[in-house]
């Protein structure tokens, strides 16, 4: 079945079994690395992406439901040369050990910060409830998300010089 997918602002025509979870299409057909397979059960959050502004577990979401939706992955947040605020914050706070869970964390945080740039500690923890980290990087992940909120506010402040 042919499906039209909008990922990070680009449209892709994919021929795929409609039951295929979105995760495998992102990773294998579109060759996007950030969303990870962790459990295939919607329990760990490693596969989290953003669909129409909400965090979605791509390992249990059939691609057939994605037609006409706006999908964002970590690749849509910036590049290694020009990282977005979340990416810059995770680098600045050195908020990774193995890093496998981090893209999912960033997508959950992205949804939170878009709605609330100054979340409380409790709100951040609740937003990350689904996301598991096994290396124990929790304190740095929390710090990076707080820092990303600051960077986002600075970027949207009216006095800030906009990149031309």
């Amino acid at each position: 079945m042919a499906i039209s997918l909008n990922v990070n602002g680009e449209t892709h025509e994919i021929d795929v079994d409609p039951a295929t979870p979105l995760l495998y299409v992102l990773r294998n057909d579109l060759e996007l690395n950030a969303a990870k397979f962790g459990c295939g059960l919607g329990q760990c959050g490693a596969c989290t992406v953003v669909v129409d502004g909400e965090a979605v577990l791509s390992c249990v979401t059939p691609v057939s439901l994605m037609e006409g939706r706006e999908i964002t992955t970590v690749e849509g947040l910036g590049t290694i040369e020009e990282p977005g605020p979340l990416q810059a914050a995770f680098m600045e706070m050195q908020a990774a050990q193995c890093g496998y869970c981090i893209p999912g964390m960033m997508m959950s945080a992205h949804v939170l910060l878009r709605k609330n740039a100054e979340p409380s500690d409790r709100e951040i923890r609740d937003a990350l409830m689904t996301n598991l980290c096994r290396c124990g990087t929790h304190m740095r992940i929390l710090a990076a998300i707080r820092r990303a909120g600051e960077l986002m506010q600075q970027a949207s402040a009216p006095t800030e010089r906009r990149a031309g």
Binding site: A34, V74, I80, L86, A96, G99, Y100
Partner: peptide, 17 residues
Amino acid sequence: PRVDIPGKVTGGVAYVQ
């Protein structure tokens, strides 16, 4: 800073996966 973190937070090829 760790050399591997920038790739890991921007969707680079980082793992055997």
